[in-house]
Each structure stands twice: as structure tokens, then as C-alpha cells.
Design a protein around this nucleic acid. Structure first.
Length: 106
DNA sequence: AGCGTGACGTTTG
DNA sequence: ACAAACGCCACGC
């Protein structure tokens, strides 16, 4: 039954949110690693899609997710990239050229 | 069914 | 450091 969302059953997205919430303040990880953490190895693109649909008022630390190259996955100096770099900076993580995140991935 | 498009990843040059 | 070539999966047309 589709609407039977008992608390023992978690959707794939919920697993992802749970994994995302576990990323510690001040550290970053990649889409691919987050996918694996959530139990879906090889689904980096899916992670990106889910994050792109997060509500604007989400309390989840979406800004701690960058790509495997260590870059913010938005065009440098776009509004989105600026929002993310601002939030990272607030956690003590520096960003070079509006793209490169100067921190090791988790 | 076919094709283009993504907040992507790995390998190779 | 940069780019191409794959691989990957969900969606919309």
C-alpha cells in the first residue's frame, strides 16, 4: 500500500536525508560518497537530483556536499555557488575562485 | 523506443 | 590542471 509509510519503512530519499544529516559540521563529502553512505553506491547523479529538489527552508546541511573533484557543482559566482560558499565559510571552510573547496573530503 | 539533460564519478591522455 | 570518453540513472519530450 503506497500510503502505508510506517516508521520502519524508509524511502530511498529518507535514507539519503539521514546520511546527509550525519555529515559533521566543518567537513564535506561528495555526491558519490553520500550515495554510498545512503546505501546506493554509484548513484551520485541521483543524489544531485534529490538535493536539487530540497525545499529552500531545509535544515539539512546540503552545502557540505561537493563533487569528487573538490569543487562546488554550480557555475562559479552563480547565486547558488555563492550561497554554498557562504555557508561553507561560516563553518571555517575556505573556497578559492568561487569553486574550489579547500578541504579534504570525508 | 530514442534522445537530450542533469547540484556526478572514474579513467585516461 | 584540463578535457574527453565512458558509465550511470531518472525524467521529460
Amino acid at each position: 500500500m503506497p500510503q502505508d509509510q510506517s516508521n520502519t519503512f524508509l524511502t530511498a530519499e529518507q535514507h539519503l536525508y539521514a546520511a546527509l544529516a550525519l555529515i559533521p559540521y566543518g567537513s564535506v563529502t561528495s555526491y558519490g560518497r553520500l550515495a554510498a553512505m545512503a546505501g546506493y553506491p554509484g548513484r551520485a547523479r541521483w543524489v544531485g537530483k534529490v538535493l536539487s529538489q530540497l525545499p529552500a527552508d531545509s535544515q539539512l546541511p546540503w552545502h557540505r556536499v561537493i563533487n569528487a573533484q573538490g569543487n562546488i557543482s554550480f557555475p562559479a559566482n552563480s547565486d547558488a555557488a555563492l550561497r554554498q560558499s557562504t555557508r561553507l565559510l561560516a563553518e571555517g571552510i575556505a573556497v578559492r575562485n568561487g569553486k574550489k573547496v579547500l578541504a579534504k573530503l570525508m
